[in-house]
């Protein structure tokens, strides 16, 4: 009994369990719905996952380093309205706005880490404050949908080879780079160490300040990227873009087997978590579950998935 449980929790912490659930849910959806496995739905589903995966990867990096970033969704929102509002359908202005958005992302990441590293504010509080500030900026800029994204960009997001949208292919390339980065980079290894135990890292000669700074800056830059992806799919930026994405991303990281305390988790699991969350929504739609009861099913599936794979987290932390 305990060995079965152990194997389950190993599956969970290695980030494989979540992919089993994804596969299982996909099979169920294929049987229960005629519209799930269609040429319209599959590319749509894949495209839908892109922004959440991007933001999840960023947040995963922050969480591994022992931090949390609650300002990501607000940053997605700000990026969306700025890029759409300033760009307003013009490619030149759009690119300028993208550059501006990244500059803002960099600033946000640096301010977050300044608060955390220098002023010792817990990242939960620091980024919660940043979340409020960014939300305020968005509403100061616009309270409704504003401008538009240039057509070629939107087309890119809907163009595809077979069932694979270009955006998914682009994401796969970026994803491969991130995987390699996790395996070969000094910084990534030190993030696991600082997130695992900052004191041990310190005694081993790792200065946690720069590591935390990098993790929060990278997280913000990924959030900006997610914002660009999100607004490009939508075609127009609105103050509702990206609402609730931070919670979805945190959920994705956790059901992917990472520890919210930092230092433990696999990227593949976090990505699986993001895919699972999008798949749950899509499947519920395709199966024909009413909008109103979807929350119940979504929550139920997530809770059962985690309960099934109770990790040995307690034993080690």
């Amino acid at each position: 009994m305990s060995s079965i449980r152990n194997r389950f929790s190993n599956l969970f912490t290695s980030g494989q369990a979540v992919w089993l659930i994804v596969a299982g849910l996909a099979v169920v959806s294929i049987f229960l719905s005629d519209t799930f496995l269609t040429e319209r739905n599959i590319p749509n589903l894949l495209g839908q996952t892109v922004p959440l995966i991007i933001i999840t990867v960023g947040l995963f990096i922050a969480i591994i380093a022992g931090q949390i970033d609650l300002s990501v969704a607000a940053l997605v929102k700000l990026t969306a309205v700025l890029v759409s509002g300033i760009g307003d359908g013009d490619m030149g202005k759009f690119l300028a706005a993208v550059a501006l958005a990244y500059a803002i992302g960099l600033t946000v990441g640096l301010i977050n880490s300044l608060l955390v590293v220098v002023f010792k504010v817990p990242s939960f509080i620091a980024t919660l404050g940043m979340f409020a500030v960014l939300e305020g900026l968005v509403l100061a800029y616009t309270v409704k949908g504003v401008g538009s994204v240039p057509t070629p960009i939107v087309d890119f997001f809907y163009g595809r080879i077979g069932p694979l949208p270009y955006s998914v292919i682009a994401l796969a390339v970026v994803g491969a780079i991130v995987f390699a980065w996790f395996h070969f980079s000094r910084l990534a290894m030190r993030m696991y160490a600082v997130g695992g135990d900052p004191e041990v890292a310190r005694r081993s000669g790792v200065n946690s300040g720069p590591v935390i700074t990098w993790s929060l800056v990278i997280c913000s830059l990924f959030a900006v990227t997610a914002g660009i992806a999100q607004v490009s799919r939508a075609g127009v930026g609105a103050p509702t873009t990206g609402e609730g994405l931070e919670l979805a991303a945190i959920t994705a990281v956790i059901i992917g087997g990472a520890s919210l305390m930092g230092g433990r988790g696999k990227l593949i699991g976090a990505i699986g978590g993001a895919v699972l969350l999008t798949l749950i929504d899509n499947s519920l739609n395709m199966i024909g579950v009413s909008q109103y009861s979807q929350g119940l099913f979504r929550g139920g599936i997530i809770v059962i998935a985690i309960a099934l794979f109770v990790s040995k987290r307690g034993a080690r932390t």
Binding site: F184, Y192, A201, G205
Partner: peptide, 22 residues
């Protein structure tokens, strides 16, 4: 660090490699 490998623990902070890569 219980979640990292023996090799990672041994070389934490002094990882062999070049520049940003180990």
């Amino acid at each position: 660090l219980p979640d990292m490998t023996v090799a990672e623990n041994l070389f934490l902070g002094i990882e062999p490699g070049h520049g940003p890569l180990i």
